[in-house]
Design a protein around this nucleic acid. Sequence first.
RNA 1: GCACCCGUAGCUCAGCUGGAUCAGAGCGCUGCCCUCCGAAGGCAGAGGUCAGGGGUUCGAAUCCCUUCGGGUGCGCCA
Length: 572
Amino acid sequence: MNIFADFQKVVEAAVAQLVEQGKLPAGLDMSKVTAEPPRDATHGDISTNVAMVLAKPAGTNPRALAALLEPVLAAHADVGKVSVAGPGFINLTLKPAIWPRALAAVLGQKDAYGSSKLGQGEKVNVEYVSANPTGPLHVGHCRGAVFGDALASLLAFSGYEVTKEYYINDAGAQVDVLAQSAFLRYREALGEQVGEIPSGLYPGDYLKPVGAALAKEHGNSLLSRNDWLPLVRDKAISMMMDMIRDDLAALAIKQEVFFSEKSLQTSGAVAGALAALEKAGHIYVGKLPPPKGETPPDWEDREQTLFRASAFGDDTDRALKKSDGSFTYFASDVAYAENKIARGFGQLIYVLGADHGGYVKRLQAVASAFSGGKVQVDVKLCQLVKLFRNGEPVKMSKRAGEFVTLRDVVDEVGADVVRFMMLYRKNEAPLDFDFAKVTEQSKDNPVFYVQYAHARICSVLRNAPANLSGTPDFALLTDEAEVALIRKIVEFPRAIEAAALAHEPHRIAFYLYELASEFHSLWNRGKELPQLRFILEGQDNVTLTRLAFLTAIRYCLANGLRVLGVTPVEEM
RNA sequence: GCACCCGUAGCUCAGCUGGAUCAGAGCGCUGCCCUCCGAAGGCAGAGGUCAGGGGUUCGAAUCCCUUCGGGUGCGCCA
């Protein structure tokens, strides 16, 4: 039950009724009409802008239109009072009976409270992480990983059919370097002294097991073969991907599709995709102008095979083949997009690092070219995470292989903390992550604060006497703090829906923080006003009511946390 | 030079896709609240020309233009 969505329909019906009576013209655009909680709760329970939005197209003014709508809305069974305020807001105060019904609905829906059919089963592809399979994930990958995963589960919760996907970059030069690095470790495993790993190769110890595995599998037979590279490469990639999957599992992330870039090339999909574009007239051979301003010193003016991305909103056309005729990385992306679209996705979401900003338009251009503009592409760019330890920035040197791995962070502070903190900020805002702060058990730490609210509720429920008699009666919840919480509970589905539509999971994190805050506030009122406590001896009806009330709050907290992939803990 | 992101309180950031006593939260600062289900909390005070300027309309922190300031990226790397 989402009373705001419900009342939006009520408002629309009221307009339709007036149209039918000939008091309003037909064909009014309802898309900007909203029904939302008013900023100030004293204005009522639901506020709609219908009169202001429709006044002009209806050829009247907001106050007059509001006056027309007022009696129609007042006739609704759940509406207690209608008032017109300000420039033409219509405020509805609902009859008190609606709240017990709303709370009862929450208790009935349990774990499903907040879920919806918003997406109507539309197929959505969320691609995230997609780190090169050349080593373990590092902190930089954390944010995109968590963000993508939370967004995927948010969309699934909202009625979309979501596929979580990882694109394996197993076709470029970097995996040959990986193979060479692994081969060195192989020789090392056979007893050779390899010394310092030459620069340009991957120095990390994590390739030692790959070398050992190769030695175990092949003995020294690879040394005498000159075709060892593909074999070593495949083994190394496979072991790196196992490691990456393990890293992701530590963050409770499990993607279902791991899509190989190489498979696109070997299967001919890349050539096929280019042929399709060619046929549609989106490809030509030509020269790109050098970038404005400083011309790169190594600039050579050469002909390339180009995609007419500029026809689809990109700044310039994009190279599909290098000057030597081989495919660019982007060509694989083109084939990959074609593949995704062929699989029937209506929306493609890419979660990328902020350094891929220049890539957004060409991805949209490709999808547009293949789908005729029908498939939507949303690229979510995640800004950098800055690590701190007690206020001091953590230094990382990539050259020396001294980067902080994702695993290091998760091992130190726990998956729940990492996940919540990564989501407690808009994706396009940079994020500071201080090891000391995020593990602190105080209200300064939002993860803790929200979890604490949930644990406190569980604590009360544990302490409740078993043999209460009577029935809950939500009409007994009349204190302002209680009423505020009921409103907040009722808002939950709306918060989820808004977050899903905007592809912004951080909104849920903020909602949960606010909900927790209202709860802690009510709790403390119980210190000053003992009659507000949850468990009251000898007043079973009140106690039962408040326990049911707490349970409803708990569903909001737990369901919201679950969407974010954070465990709702019962004790701390 | 071009494109994208950002600019809100001393600090870190929200602001529900244009709404109303709307300028908010947390930290920090000042002062309060445990005989009581978890004080691991809560309440109150001080603090901002929403970077500057213009425009769009009933209405702008939010949309458009522009200036300034910060970040990222910019043919064949992946």
